[in-house]
Write a protein that binds this DNA or RNA. Structure first.
Length: 898
RNA sequence: GGGCGCGUAGCUCAGCGGGAGAGCACUGCCUUGACAUGGCAGGGGCCACAGGUUCAAUCCCUGUCGCGCCCACCA
């Protein structure tokens, strides 16, 4: 016997173990079934499961379980990402906490060794947690972006792109994170609004005492690196100054006043200081005017004078070399305060206005980034992006929902060179070696590089490998094929690439999706997946983004512990509509847990009534209206649920299953079935029993992708198949039902009759204990026959003493309800409140009259009758007739009651 | 500055050209042998606002307001 309550804590881990150990998650490259592939977005190896993971992995698991049940050879490829910066930070923090020396003191090799050790000890957290969620990943295929095979793929890609001229070195400004001391990509920069100041600084004009050009800046400290002042060529205020020189205060550098369209007369003073090595725009201006580009901040954003030494006191007057030298080694903000104070002292600070500005911050380190002039490795993203754009334009890869295409296009069409080198230790070391003269040798291995060097130099020369590692996204961009063994030609690669669906959040469309598209097409000659399903973000119950600082983080594992994984998964499905964020709190999960409970109890009821799987049952041979009706409704539910999954409508999938299970199967079918089930051994009882069993089996299969645990437990318990076999059971398909339409009409009438009677009773405050006769007035013989057929059921569910035609006069004190052609009369033996009954009937009548008014108006409109489609007009005529008949009967009822 | 999304019942949302829906919450009744994590019944909505298209608009178009997000180098 099933326990009275469902206990997920006991059942879930046991079933997961059963599935996993029996190989139920395994793809089969030798299979003849068509493959269905989802590549997991590899979570950071440092990660632990958060609600965002729970959402994305539930969606993926629903899809993979569904397709697996449909007979596809399903591969859900597992793995984790080495996550360069994040992991390095985690281990560095750990070293600090344990009082160890920092990584620089440790040395590169020892540090990396330590990270691997950390991974071995703690890197499995997320994969354990995925199991708790029920994720049916093909675990033996688990990969790591830094394992040998994937590292080989990375080198292969790097070398190939380099040889194709699509990877190159360049010296230009990058976003430099002074905390992490590495370059980061544009995407890793987050602008934060800061309330700062706009300082107006006077730059004296050379040789013209007491004449100044005033520049406005939000970053006065960078003036140390100024090498020009730019004004707009059309700006009349400054035209006379173009070609002259200003003297950079404090430093004493002689800097030209140049005309450049970049300068905006509307902004600031119209004259802008140009610091080519510390501002992206200024860099361009510097290039156009061939300006010096001295760097004045070091790797940690401290003032560094090395590159402006020669300019110090180039011109006398406002120079103060002593002061400037005192800034050497000072933090950028310390230097800022000192410089502002000094300028004020010198009378060169014209004014200071409050000013809000966007300050770029590194998304990992969290400190303001600095543009920094360095040599880095770049990938020519523009070339790689073109075929990826085309693939989406032509629909070879489609976004769901479609609107995300716009986001993708906007970024891809204006893509910038991708800086792929990082000044970190943890990651794929760039396979480039330098000779003594600085020549670069790019090769798969040091031996390869050495061979190249030998060829060039004619002898062995010492080579040093590039110190940098690759951007993490460089390797995760290869994920759809590197995990399948590329560059080897494996059976897996041939079979599972391209994959089917990528499921992810919009926040990594640029980071990851775009890169997989670019690299997948370039190296595999085909898109990595045909569909990109983009889901929303998980927010808290009030719609706030979850964050540590707000303290509104919800832990999915806690929810699983409390309500079970099924409850969480079903909640996620029900709330995941297209293009919507998911607002989720414990109470939502609690609500949906009751669905799991309901299913459990329905199954318990079935068990108590001897319902057991019957393989010989053939739905097409069902003979009773009741069984035909529920089988027909089951078909509808199957069709709805399947269509919803095909359309990635997880909310509709959950809704269709929910409504069918609760409102149709439990509320009506099982209630209708009770007498037959109690009956024992008649043929009818046997058919009802077999049908109930069949429908329950369909339900379990239908619900399995969303709530795999409870469904598998019930499946196994009833013996629909071998233990842990539901996961591989066939997805239901609609099966023909004889005379379904007639059964629908019949049962629909019964349902409506019971509903009408219940409604009247409730409104008339008839106690449930009172058994009231149901009398049908003006009913056709057909209706009366139907009433007789369902008499037992109606009496039980409407708490009636009898159901029959009204013979003779209507008893005094009757309540009435209109049902199709008949009027349902409930003789309440004077127990009814006449005024209340009158009011109730009048309300019903007014509702109908209101509808009549609307329809009459519509039909009275000649244009409507002429121009609307015929069936719409006909439908409205039908409705009019129906409402009119209803009003007539309600009027009669009202007359009778007085 | 550009772009996207959203404003429908108290809350969370579905519907998106012809009858305003669900879940939760709320109210009343019910411990009826699956389930009180339940059953039955009920109340509750100028579908943000203003124009337009249409025989017909919650739904399509335009604009306004409000909320959220993304992108952008602005001094």
């Amino acid at each position: 016997m099933l326990d009275k309550t469902y206990d997920p804590a006991e059942i879930e881990p046991r079933l997961y173990e059963g599935w996993e150990s029996s190989g139920a998650f395994a793809a089969d490259p030798a299979s003849s079934a068509p493959p269905f592939t989802i590549m997991i977005p590899p979570p950071n190896v440092t990660g632990s499961l958060h609600m965002g993971h729970a959402l994305t992995f539930t969606v993926q698991d629903v899809l993979i379980r569904w397709r697996r049940m449909q007979g596809r050879d399903a591969l859900w490829q597992p793995g984790t990402d080495h996550a360069g910066i994040a992991t390095q930070m985690v281990v560095e923090r750990l070293l600090a906490e344990q009082g160890n020396v920092d990584r620089r003191a440790m040395g590169r090799e020892a540090f990396i060794e330590r990270v691997w050790q950390w991974k071995a000890e703690s890197g499995g957290t997320i994969t354990r947690q995925l199991r708790r969620l029920g994720a049916s990943l093909d675990w033996p295929r688990e990969r790591f972006t830094m394992d040998d095979g994937l590292s080989r793929a990375v080198r292969e890609v790097f070398v190939t792109l380099y040889r194709q001229g699509l990877i190159y070195r360049d010296r230009r400004l990058v976003n430099w994170d002074p905390k992490l001391q590495t370059a980061i990509s544009d995407l890793e920069v987050e602008n934060q609004e800061i309330r700062g100041s706009l300082w107006h600084i006077r730059y004296p004009i050379e040789g013209e005492p007491d004449r100044f050009i005033t520049v406005a800046t939000t970053r006065p400290e960078t003036m140390l690196g100024d090498t020009a002042v730019a004004v707009h060529p059309e700006d009349a205020r400054y035209r006379a100054l173009v070609g002259k020189f200003a003297v950079l205060p404090l430093v004493g550098r002689r800097i030209p006043i140049v005309a450049d369209e970049y300068s905006d007369p509307e902004k600031g003073t119209g004259a802008v200081k140009i610091t080519p090595a510390h501002d992206f725009n200024d860099f361009e201006v510097g290039r156009r005017h061939d300006l010096p580009m001295p760097t004045i901040l070091d790797r940690e954003a401290r003032v560094s004078l090395a590159e402006i030494e020669d300019a110090l006191a180039m011109v006398d007057g406002v120079a103060d070399p002593t002061f400037v030298r005192s800034l050497d080694g000072k933090d950028r903000y310390v230097a800022r305060r000192a410089i502002v104070a000094k300028l004020e002292e010198l009378g060169l600070l014209e004014k200071t206005d409050p000013h809000t500005l966007q300050v770029p911050h590194g998304d990992r380190g969290g400190v303001p980034i600095e543009p920094r002039l360095t040599t880095q490795w770049y990938a020519n993203a523009e070339v790689l992006a073109k075929p990826a754009i085309e693939a989406v334009e032509t629909g070879r890869t489609q976004f769901v929902p479609k609107q995300w295409e716009n986001t993708f296009f906007a970024w891809m069409r204006d893509i910038q060179p991708w800086c792929i080198s990082r000044q970190l230790w943890w990651g794929h070391r760039i396979p480039a070696w330098y000779g003594p003269d600085g020549t670069v040798f790019v090769a798969h291995s040091e031996d390869g590089a050495r061979a190249q060097a030998r060829e060039k130099y004619g002898r062995d020369e010492p080579l040093t490998q590039d110190e940098d590692v690759l951007d993490t996204w460089f390797s995760s961009g290869l994920w759809p094929f590197s995990t399948l063994g590329w560059p080897e030609k494996t059976p897996e690669l041939a079979r599972y690439y391209p994959g089917d669906v990528l499921v992810t959040g919009f926040d990594i469309i640029f980071f990851w999706v775009a890169r997989m598209m670019m690299q997948g097409i370039h190296f595999m000659g085909d898109v990595p997946f045909h569909t990109i399903y983009i889901h929303g973000l998980v927010r808290d119950e009030r719609g706030q983004k979850m964050s540590k600082s707000k303290g509104n983080i919800i832990d999915p594992l806690e929810l699983i512990g409390q309500y079970g994984a099924d409850a969480l998964r079903f909640t996620i499905c029900a709330l995941t509509g297209p293009g919507r964020d998911v607002k989720l709190g414990a109470s939502r999960v609690q609500d949906h847990r009751s669905f799991v409970t309901k299913l459990w109890n329905a199954a318990r009821f079935c068990e108590m009534n001897g319902i057991a799987p019957d393989a010989s049952f053939d739905p097409s041979r069902a003979s009773l209206p009741l069984t035909r009706w529920i089988l027909d409704a089951t078909n509808t539910a199957v069709a709805e649920a399947t269509a919803a999954l095909e359309a990635y409508r997880f909310d509709e999938f959950a809704g269709a299953c929910y409504r069918f299970t609760w409102n149709t199967f439990c509320d009506w079918f099982l209630e209708f079935a009770k007498p037959a089930l109690a009956e024992g051994d008649t043929a009818a009882a046997a058919e009802v029993r077999a049908t109930a069993s069949h429908v329950l089996g369909v339900l379990l299969r239908l619900l399995h992708p969303a709530i795999p645990f409870v469904t598998e437990e019930l499946w196994d318990h009833f013996g629909y198949g071998a233990p842990c076999s539901l996961i591989r059971a066939a997805w239901p398909i609609p099966a023909p039902v004889t005379d379904a339409a007639a059964a629908r009409v019949e049962l629909d009438w019964v349902v409506r009759l019971i509903g009408a009677v219940r409604s009247v009773r409730s409104e008339m405050n008839v106690p449930p204990s009172a058994m009231v006769p149901i009398l049908l007035r003006d009913a056709t013989p057909e209706t009366l026959a139907r009433a007789a057929r369902w008499s037992d059921t109606i009496r039980r569910l409407a708490r009636a003493s009898e159901v029959q035609a009204l013979a003779g006069d209507m008893p005094k004190g009757s309540a009435q309800a209109v049902l199709d052609e008949a009027t349902v009369v409930l003789p309440l033996a004077g127990a009814i409140d006449v005024a209340a009954e009158h009011a109730r009937l009048a309300k019903e009548r007014d509702k109908a009259l209101n509808e009549i008014g609307k329809v009459v108006k519509k039909l009275g409109n000649a244009d409507f009758v002429r121009r609307a489609p015929e069936e719409v007009v006909a439908e409205n005529r039908d409705r009019l007739a129906t409402f009119q008949a209803e009003v007539a009967r309600l009027e009669a009822a009202l007359r009778w009651i007085g």
